[in-house]
């Protein structure tokens, strides 16, 4: 059913990266390791984006997540001295969470994804359209009057607010003249 070619091999490797990295994040005791697992997982997601013909998003994924967010997380780990969590990694109700999560996954996979998008559904095509929009089309859509120009500006405001808010909250009281 699924032939063995370069794409499927790449898909398998990337899936292993994503899921392995994700498991590393939620299980590791050492939070610096956790951040590195996160990087691995997000690198896999970037690979997915390439496979899905969205190379622009792949580059942005590496740039934003690995270059900035992961670094920020490591800074926070160092600043809060929580490199290795002393005591328990998980809380006492962790097994309830585990069961819930497994049930949720079964619901999602067996209940929704396979019936709706499985065999014979629109996504189960063997050939995809070769022409897809790239960064140029994305740029046009972002600033088009009938496109995403409003969210585009709102994103800017959100970023501004996030930056100001984070600076206000994160700074020590003593060295900031309020």
């Amino acid at each position: 059913m699924i032939e063995l070619n370069a794409q499927t091999i790449a898909f398998a490797i990337l899936s292993a990266l994503i899921l392995g990295g994700g498991l590393g994040v939620v299980t590791t005791r050492n939070l610096v390791h956790g951040a590195l697992w996160l990087i691995l997982s997000l690198l896999g997601v970037a690979g997915y984006f390439v496979l899905l013909s969205a190379p622009f998003l792949a580059a942005v994924q590496v740039l934003v997540y690995i270059g900035a967010i992961a670094i920020l997380i490591v800074f926070a780990v160092m600043l809060t001295r929580s490199m290795t969590s002393l005591g328990e990694v998980r809380n006492r109700q962790w097994w309830i969470s585990a069961i819930t999560v497994v049930l949720l996954f079964l619901l999602l996979a067996v209940g929704i994804i396979l019936p709706v998008w499985g065999r014979g559904a629109p996504g189960d095509v063997t050939t995809l359209s070769a022409t897809v929009g790239g960064a140029v089309e994305l740029g046009e859509a972002l600033v088009a009057g009938d496109g995403f120009v409003l969210p585009f500006e709102v994103a800017s405001i959100l970023l501004t607010a996030a930056m100001i808010g984070a600076i206000v909250v994160a700074r020590d009281e003593e060295d900031g003249q309020a």
């Binding site: 590195l36 740039l63 690995i66 270059g67 992961a70 670094i71």
Partner: peptide
């Protein structure tokens, strides 16, 4: 000849901070 060429450079370059962090830590 990637369509995002220059962004590829920026993305790969941004791993630079990670390697410094790994080495130092």
């Amino acid at each position: 000849d990637l369509s995002i060429g220059i962004l590829y450079f920026v993305a790969v370059g941004s791993i630079g901070a990670v390697k410094v962090m790994i080495g130092g830590w």
